[in-house]
Every structure is written in structure tokens, then in C-alpha cells.
Amino acid sequence: MLEGKVKWFNSEKGFGFIEVEGQDDVFVHFSAIQGEGFKTLEEGQAVSFEIVEGNRGPQAANVTKEA
């Protein structure tokens, strides 16, 4: 699992990017966010995740919000 911070997330469109120190930003789709209820992320929020190869390159999977 990697750790990063949410760079930005558009809850209307359901996607955004996660910043990872020393690496390129990683695309995140709302469907990759773990948990119940409305799936969104806040700018600057700490998250842990895995990287998988998507249709358009690397993207986040199994995203969990850090306490």
C-alpha cells in the first residue's frame, strides 16, 4: 500500500488525483474508494491505496481514508 494526499477531487464528476511524494500524481475514480455511503475525498486528505494499470495508465485502487 502507498500513502498520499488528495490533490483535488471533483465529487460531481467522481474523480480526482492523489499526490505521492517522489512520484507522478495518481488518478482516482470514486468507485475505488472503500467504505459505505457517498464516496468522495477532500483536498489534502491523507489516503492509502494501491496502484493498478487502468485503460489510460496507472490509477488508484482500494483507496482508504486515513484517520
Rank of each mutant, 00 (worst) to 15 (best):
E12A: 13
N55E: 13
V6W: 01
F17R: 03
Q34N: 14
V26T: 07
S31T: 15
F17W: 07
E66A: 15
K13S: 09
V47T: 03
R56V: 09
E42H: 14
T64F: 12
K65E: 07
V63Q: 00
G57Q: 05
G44C: 04
I51A: 04
E50Y: 13
N55F: 13
V20A: 08
E3I: 15
N55L: 15
F9W: 13
P58V: 11
G16L: 01
P58E: 06
I51R: 07
E12P: 07
K13A: 10
E36H: 10
E50C: 04
K65I: 15
E3V: 15
N10Q: 08
V6Q: 01
G4A: 04
F49E: 00
G14E: 01
E36N: 11
G37Y: 06
A32D: 14
E66T: 15
G57F: 05
A60T: 02
D25V: 06
K7L: 06
E12K: 14
G16V: 01
G4E: 01
M1V: 14
E42C: 06
K5W: 07
V6N: 01
G54H: 09
V52H: 10
V47M: 02
G16H: 00
K65Y: 14
A61N: 09
N55C: 05
F27Q: 02
Q45N: 09
K39S: 06
V63L: 10
G22H: 09
L2E: 06
V52F: 11
T40V: 11
E50V: 08
A67N: 14
Q45Y: 07
V6L: 04
F38H: 13
P58L: 11
A46P: 13
G22T: 06
K5T: 07
I33K: 01
G37P: 07
V6I: 10
R56P: 09
E43W: 14
K7N: 03
E66D: 14
S31R: 09
N62S: 12
G14F: 02
V26P: 01
Q45A: 11
D25K: 04
V26F: 06
G44H: 09
E3Y: 15
E36I: 07
A32C: 04
E19N: 09
W8N: 04
R56L: 14
K5G: 02
V6Y: 00
E3P: 10
K13T: 07
G54E: 07
F9E: 01
V47Y: 02
V26H: 03
K39P: 09
F49K: 00
S31V: 04
E53R: 10
A61D: 08
T64G: 09
A61C: 04
E66G: 15
E21G: 11
E53D: 14
V63T: 03
W8R: 04
Q59Y: 10
Q23F: 12
E43A: 15
L2R: 06
F30I: 08
F17H: 04
F27I: 03
E36M: 09
K13L: 11
E12Y: 15
K5D: 03
I33T: 02
V26W: 03
G4V: 01
F9Y: 09
D25Q: 06
V52M: 12
A61E: 08
M1K: 14
N55R: 13
W8Q: 03
A61Q: 11
D24H: 14
A67G: 12
G44I: 02
G57M: 05
H29R: 04
A32W: 04
T40E: 09
D25E: 06
E3H: 15
E21H: 15
F27C: 02
R56E: 08
I18W: 00
G44R: 08
Q59S: 07
I18Q: 00
Q45I: 09
Q59K: 08
G16C: 01
L41Q: 01
I51T: 07
E21I: 15
E42N: 10
S11C: 05
D24M: 13
I51E: 03
F15Q: 04
G35Y: 07
G44Q: 07
D25W: 05
T40M: 09
Q23D: 09
F9Q: 01
V26E: 01
E36D: 12
G35H: 10
E66V: 15
I33L: 09
F9T: 03
F9K: 02
Q23K: 12
F38L: 09
D25C: 05
P58I: 11
E36G: 10
N10P: 02
E21R: 13
E19P: 01
K5I: 06
N10S: 13
I33Q: 02
K39G: 06
G22P: 03
N10H: 08
F38C: 06
V47D: 00
V28C: 04
K7T: 04
G44F: 07
E19W: 14
F27P: 03
A60Y: 01
E53Y: 14
I18R: 00
A67D: 08
T64D: 07
G35K: 06
F30G: 05
V63G: 01
Q45M: 12
Q59L: 07
A46N: 13
I33P: 01
P58Y: 09
E12V: 13
L41R: 01
K39Q: 13
D25H: 06
V63M: 03
E3W: 15
H29T: 03
Q59T: 09
G44V: 02
K65N: 08
K65A: 12
P58M: 10
T64N: 13
P58Q: 08
G14K: 03
A61S: 11
L41F: 03
E66L: 15
I51Y: 07
T40W: 10
V20N: 07
E19Y: 13
F17K: 05
F27S: 02
V28F: 13
A32Q: 10
V52N: 05
R56A: 14
V26Q: 02
N55V: 14
K7P: 01
Q45F: 07
V52L: 10
F15S: 03
E43Y: 13
P58H: 08
L41T: 03
N10F: 07
K65G: 09
F49D: 00
F38E: 08
N10R: 08
S48H: 15
G22R: 07
S31P: 05
G16Y: 01
G35V: 11
G14L: 02
H29I: 05
G44D: 06
T40P: 03
E19Q: 14
M1R: 14
R56I: 09
G57E: 03
K39A: 08
L2P: 04
G22A: 09
K65V: 12
Q59D: 02
N10D: 12
V63F: 00
F15K: 02
A32H: 07
T40N: 09
I51M: 10
V28K: 00
E42F: 15
K7Y: 03
L41G: 02
E36W: 05
Q34R: 12
A61V: 10
H29F: 11
V20I: 10
F9I: 03
T40Y: 11
S31K: 10
S11D: 07
T64P: 02
P58F: 11
M1C: 05
F15T: 03
L2H: 12
A60N: 01
E3R: 15
E66N: 15
S31Q: 07
G16P: 00
G4K: 01
I51K: 08
V28Y: 03
Q59E: 11
S11R: 15
V26A: 03
G54S: 12
K13I: 09
K7I: 07
W8I: 04
